[in-house]
Design a binder for these strands. Structure first.
Lengths: 221, 221
DNA sequence: CGCCTTCCGTGACTTTGTCACCAAACGAAG
DNA sequence: CTTCGTTTGGTGACAAAGTCACGGAAGGCG
């Protein structure tokens, strides 16, 4: 726990808040650091607090009864988790899992304080709901992707999006979860891309050899 | 347009509103009747008003670039459309289509009045956001369904859910859109169910012959 | 009745998912 | 360094679902 105003001041997103709201956030927010792999919430959990990420990244994914998984979205710095907001507002239980990806510093605001802030601060309301609206569209895109788009196209797009320095660090399983598919299929697709000279496979890593070629595949859908 | 308070009084969901909010809603809301088939909004449209259904039903569905469609949810009496709320809050464009199913009487509240009501009325905020939270979970369920559940199971469930009086009035195409699949596949599955004596097919209609048998299939996943 | 539109059935083929194994690469313990 | 268990990746055989291309049957309507 930090002195009041310390972490609040560090949030660009919070400058729009009026003084009383910032003070209330400081007082009510519990600041915490979570290690990679930590489970922030799981399906069936009641929602006890509104969550705001200061630094790091939390991955939110859904698991089916058959064990298959799909990544819904990630919560990055200055963002809040739409599922948490939805659960708080609708008084529902979590229906997905939140997993810390990189060490994350986050603020937890208890239900009571969250509701009070929503009541009292127009700035806080904007903060909460603007993000909400934008994330909702993201989820719909994800639904469209999984339901309608071919896997090779989505795979090519993911590789391009993730290829920070010409390579992607991820296992085939990681990628399958990202796309809502399964390892075997992803492995085969990657093997084909390798045979065609577009990428080169290593254990836990994929080197991009022909970005333009991947672009061509990605643009096909 | 009705006299102030007329239609507002008819809404069970609105009793929680305080007098000023009800007056504001009465003044700002545009009451309108829409025929079946009317398009309430389409992808790319800007969101000009918050929508509330008084009677009837609006189907919200997403269309992919390849022409495939999937029903996201329906908006029934006393409900509002989560996508509209999300677009208003996030200042985004519509990403789906809203189509009137049965003749619908609805209230449209302009953006300005919507924002003012959100600011001024705690009751209105509750009204808007409680529904929002619940619908969001529905969408996640839909995503899980489309991504992970077998079609025969989802089909059996749909038939049972829709079999009001022992039969379902829908074309195979209707059902395919409902499930996010395609007509040919649905036709084949239905044919199999008919061969197994679980249903009987007519043009635009499906008679349920063995609900227990369908239950067994539906329970398998 | 003839004509047109909608709805349904089906074969052939592609893509994706499931199941069952195996092998290579890695890492921790001895 | 070797052993051994775990993680990761590869592959064949098959099932489920989607795509493409038809063609035919049922209804509506002049």
């Amino acid at each position: 726990m930090q002195p009041a105003g310390d972490w609040v001041a560090a949030f660009p997103a919070l400058v729009q808040l009026d003084a009383p709201a910032r003070a209330a956030l400081s007082a009510a927010g519990q600041r915490m650091t979570l290690p990679p792999g930590a489970e922030v919430f799981a399906p069936g959990d009641p929602c006890r607090a509104w969550l705001l990420v200061e630094s790091g990244s939390v991955r939110v994914q859904m698991t089916s009864d058959t064990g298959r998984e799909v990544v819904l979205y990630r919560v990055g710095p200055t963002e809040s988790c739409i599922l948490t907001t939805a659960c708080l507002l609708g008084e529902e239980l979590y229906s997905a899992t939140g997993i810390v990806e990189t060490e994350t510093v986050g603020i937890a605001v208890g239900v009571g304080a969250f509701r009070r802030l929503l009541e009292d601060s127009a700035g806080f309301r904007d903060l909460v709901f603007a993000g909400f609206g934008r994330r909702f569209t993201d989820i719909l895109m994800r639904l469209e992707d999984v339901a309608f788009h071919r896997l090779d196209i989505r795979l090519a797009r993911l590789l391009l999006a993730r290829a920070a320095d010409g390579s992607v660090d991820a296992t085939h399983q990681d990628i399958a979860v990202e796309l809502g598919s399964v390892r075997e299929v992803v492995s085969r697709q990657l093997k084909t891309l390798e045979r065609d000279g577009l990428i080169q496979l290593d254990r836990g890593r994929i080197e991009i050899r022909d970005p333009a070629g991947l672009q061509r595949i990605a643009a096909a859908g």
